[in-house]
Write a protein that binds this DNA or RNA. Structure first.
Lengths: 359, 359
DNA sequence: GCGCGGACTGCAAACGAGTGCGGGCTATCA
DNA sequence: TGATAGCCCGCACTCGTTTGCAGTCCGCGC
């Protein structure tokens, strides 16, 4: 009945519910456990004769032997496991990245421990400590802030890691992000082409590299296109979410509502704008154009479908994972970072400013 | 500089980058490792004198000792870890459930391993085997099918588990789901109240308990309200996603488009309907009302905002986790299942059928 | 004064796998 | 025939922790 290798022992030992151990296969193959270990491990297989190797492997197969990763980790201080540190799995931005990561990890026999920090540094510390005590071989971190002493300390201690979506200043650690600067440039160009002259920016938290890069790129792009460069058109959101996007948008509207378009730091902030539009009866895109950033899943189903800049979520994850594996395999290699290309995704949340430019 | 306990050894041993071990704290406290172990573990602490316990605990604290979970797992065959088996993290339904699970697990000192199966039984098997070899103490499973021999086998082997969102026939395993039947009844009543007489149903896969419960409830509700009970108004979606929802909707429209409303098996299927509406220029809700199921995150931001039945995602996760912990703590307890209450969430995707009933 | 029990604590053996070291065997050559 | 090298394989220890068992010491009662 039972699928595994239950109780085929000649005697009536039905107790054998435990999975087979290395000793079991050694015994079955008539060799010592040490020999079995060497035979099963490809890198040490050359130390045993081809014949015994064959016998051991066969025994392992018929017994359904699976090495115990716990015991192996204890001995080797490795675990074929990496930690994934993200702020909140509930943010739709992350699941696709996680999938990208898992896909390449899995292909290499690794797997990922996911932890949420909720943007709480204390929590982050605790979760990372826990990951380390579980012998993860590296960390993929999506919660980096511009100034992040804890990560610096980890790096000093030789913890392998790669940053996704973020970087930290003065820290020589590989990162993979979308090409935020050209993304913002594309967004501004799109709005400028539509005829907008006064464009606002709901900047992401300036404690994150993404926030500063995007807002800096915004100011550059504004100047490049000769648009109105008014500092009061930029307000910073406390966090990358709808609520803080909404409060920033309210502040902006209360301060000066003569702008006709806004580029949001990311899609969630744009969603916050939508909420404020609903509150105040502002029609989008007729009265106000908005463009987001990230092209989150389902953001195309919104009302109206959000114009945004698309980033390759899966690739970001996949590249980060590949990079981490590289770091693990050859610790000497210099950190190498990656900026992934973005695309402008035009939907219905942007249009010409009102009054329409005469054709 | 470094935050931990680096190299405070009196001699110049800077090598001490390794975290302190139980032996280290035992030595520091002037006792044997066994005593230190007992002193540190609350459940065995009464075996040592209060004085030594105090000394050991203090030494552990100053050294910054953290027990090595790997070694502990190896010895005790426990891991304070449970496996989370879900089809796809990218489905927005799951992250909130996962968060609910993690919140209660964390409070009990447990943590969760998340794995995706992509609805591939082979993959599911492999991932679960991997979880088991990592000594998880139980499984929370969101991928159950009505007939699921693998899960039955696991249960036979004494693997503790609880099912979320699903159940499997003839398997005495606790499950926690939303109250699907009354949810569907609510949806049908809502549409009937609006005046709809011919209501279609895009049923979820009948290989899942959720699919069969909801479609059975649909037929009951239709009869209870004396509506048109036409079997050709029900079509089954191959999977719980947009694409299969869309193809089912197309099939329905091609077959008979005289219905005025549709209750979708879940929100993603409803999203598929939206896609088809866009394709064929059908206006929702004016020409066609649709109600979803689950009240996924962001589904309220859709065009139009989806009327749906709300389920307590977080609670589902939390209750499932609590239930699993109960099973782990007292293996003798009878399986106890839970049906969580749902609510009708009326938004803009439903309205009176056209022609409007005269007021 | 002896024995006994209780309270602590140390010893040592695990858990399952990996690995340095040495020993046995065979083959080769002087 | 004896020495040497090389190939295999087993012994025994290790990773860090838990735990059954046994030993020590003390106090108390008969």
């Amino acid at each position: 009945m039972r699928p595994n290798q239950p109780s085929l022992t000649p005697a009536g030992e039905v107790k054998r519910a435990q999975p087979p151990t290395l000793r079991d296969v050694a015994e079955a193959a008539g060799v010592h456990a040490a020999t079995a270990s060497r035979a099963l491990n490809p890198s040490t297989r050359r130390l045993v004769s081809a014949e015994t190797a064959r016998r051991v492997i066969k025994a392992a197969k018929t017994l359904g032997y699976q090495p115990n990763p716990i015991a192996r980790s204890l001995k080797t201080a490795k675990s074929s496991t990496v930690g994934l540190v993200i702020p909140d799995l509930t943010n739709p931005l992350f699941p696709p990245i996680v999938r990208g990561i898992e896909d390449v990890l899995e292909a290499e026999g690794f797997s990922a421990w996911i932890v949420n920090t909720d943007n709480d540094p204390e929590r982050e510390r605790a979760r990372i400590d826990s990951l380390r005590s579980r012998q993860v071989e590296g960390l993929i971190i999506a919660t980096a802030r511009v100034d992040h002493p804890f990560l610096e300390a980890l790096h000093e201690q030789g913890v392998k890691m790669v940053l996704v979506n973020r970087r930290v200043e003065n820290l020589e650690v590989p990162y993979v992000t979308a090409d935020d600067a050209t993304g913002i440039a594309l967004a501004v160009r799109h709005l400028a082409d539509l005829g907008h002259r006064r464009i606002a920016h709901l900047a992401g938290p300036q404690g994150t590299s993404t926030g500063v890069v995007r807002s800096r790129a915004f100011r550059h792009a504004i100047r490049d296109h000769g648009l109105e460069d008014d500092p009061s058109l930029i307000v910073e959101c406390a966090r990358w979410n709808e609520a803080d996007g909404a409060t920033a948008m309210r502040e902006l509207l209360d301060r000066d509502d003569r702008f006709t378009a806004v580029v949001a730091g990311n899609d969630l902030i744009a969603l916050g704008c939508y909420d404020v539009f609903a509150e105040r009866g502002i029609s989008c895109p007729d009265e106000m154009s908005v463009v987001g950033f990230n092209d989150m899943p389902f953001i195309d189903k919104l009302r109206p479908p959000l114009t945004t800049v698309g980033v390759p979520h899966n690739d970001i994850g996949a590249e980060a994972a590949r990079m981490l594996l590289d770091c693990i395999e050859e610790p000497e290699r210099r950190p190498r970072s990656l900026l992934l290309p973005v695309t402008m995704v035009v939907r219905d949340s942007t249009t010409h400013p009102r009054p329409l430019p005469s054709p």
